[in-house]
């Protein structure tokens, strides 16, 4: 049977992923920082899918020492892991949020995914995935620090993919564009954004196919490629947000 561990899944894309996986009869472990919220979401999804399995776990990815014990507890309850998706991510304004963004978007991801890599290497199969961002593809003026943490995450995952390829373990980088979650808020008239539920469906399809890197939705590949290929002098002048 298929089992997915979702880290950072009490909101946004993570919660939407939990719903799609439950609908597909995967067994789900859902971890989040806030115990009350974890219980509430597990309760909500549990009553939505009464014949499916969902277990909750409390995990603050910024507390290094807690990461492995929390994950082990959740795994013991779930029984098994076929896929691990790191969905935790924060975007904060200004230099004061730097530490928090580095901790959650990058260092926490490294701790969680290293633990997952260890498990999957022993299993000889499995897939690790994390939610990166189109903002990590090129330095952008909107939030240079957020973009830098996502770029670090992308680079780490690429290295991890190469390290684990021989062990039969896949690594996926998911790069969403604008998804309507708490992170962006319900900005009316935001450029072509999609609902978290729609994003989750696209992500599940990409992971099912075992894709290494994919954009959500797919057309962001065109935008991001154009931005990545754009000569620096031109990029400076246009300066997309």
């Amino acid at each position: 049977m298929k089992h997915v561990v979702l880290v950072g899944a009490t909101d946004g894309i993570g919660k939407a992923l939990a719903r799609v996986y439950l609908d597909r009869s995967w067994r789900v472990a859902l971890l989040g920082r806030d115990e009350g919220k974890v219980d509430a979401v597990v309760g909500e999804l549990g009553s939505e899918f009464p014949s499916e399995t969902i277990v909750g776990g409390v995990l603050d990815v910024a507390r290094d020492g807690d990461v492995v014990p929390s994950l082990e507890r959740a795994l013991a309850a779930l029984g098994q892991m076929d896929l691990l998706v790191y969905c935790a991510g924060v975007m904060e304004a200004g230099v004061s949020g730097t530490r928090r963004m580095v901790d959650v978007n990058f260092i926490g991801a490294v701790h969680v995914l290293s633990w997952g890599a260890d498990y999957f290497v022993e299993a000889g199969k499995g897939r690790l995935a994390a939610i990166g961002s189109v903002a990590g593809d090129r330095g952008r003026k909107g939030n240079p620090i957020y973009g830098a943490t996502k770029a670090a995450l992308h680079q780490y995952l690429e290295g991890l993919r190469h390290a684990l390829h021989g062990a039969g373990v896949g690594v996926s980088v998911i790069k969403p564009g604008w998804v309507r979650t708490r992170m962006l808020g319900d900005v009316p008239g935001f450029p072509p954004s999609i609902a978290a539920s729609k994003a989750a469906e696209i992500i599940v399809r990409g992971l099912d196919r075992g894709r290494d890197v994919f954009y959500v939705p797919g057309w962001w590949w065109v935008v991001s490629s154009a931005l990545r290929l754009m000569p620096r002098p031109l990029f400076k002048r246009i300066a997309p947000p």
Binding site: M1, K2, R24, S25, D208, R209
Partner: peptide, 16 residues
């Protein structure tokens, strides 16, 4: 066969 992707989903719906 447990399979993956849509096969797995159809199988689980059948078993339910």
């Amino acid at each position: 066969a447990v399979g993956r992707g849509e096969h797995y989903v159809r199988l689980m719906r059948l078993l339910r």
